[in-house]
Amino acid sequence: MQYLLLIYDDEKNDLKMTQPQLGEVMQAYMAYTEKLRTDGVYLGSNRLRPVETASSIRIRDGKTNVMNGPFAETREQLGGYYLIDVPDEQKARHYAALCPGAKTGTMEVRPVWAM
């Protein structure tokens, strides 16, 4: 089964970090990605640019609105995701807990709808 692991983390943390600290975080993510790959569960991942670069689009009564910012204003922001393929939800949660984002923010585990 495929699961989407969404990483919610406070974007401001990144800004407070020094260059070496940022490097450490990057390395932790790279090691995590590598672990997913060697375990054969990795399907894809992406880091998202900060929410200030987001736009949201809604069409109502034929009127299109383009708004600045993300859909949900949250204390921690969606900063990236991993898509993995594992046998069950237990395993998905296991890998979510291994993600560096679980220590500093919140991981959301979403099952993907098999088509």
């Binding site: 880091r47 998202l48 640019r49 929410v51 987001a54 736009s55 949201s56 689009i57 809604r58 859909f71």
Partner: peptide, 8 residues
């Protein structure tokens, strides 16, 4: 709502 986020 469709949220557009650039990939880093």
């Amino acid at each position: 709502t469709v949220e557009v986020r650039p990939i880093w």
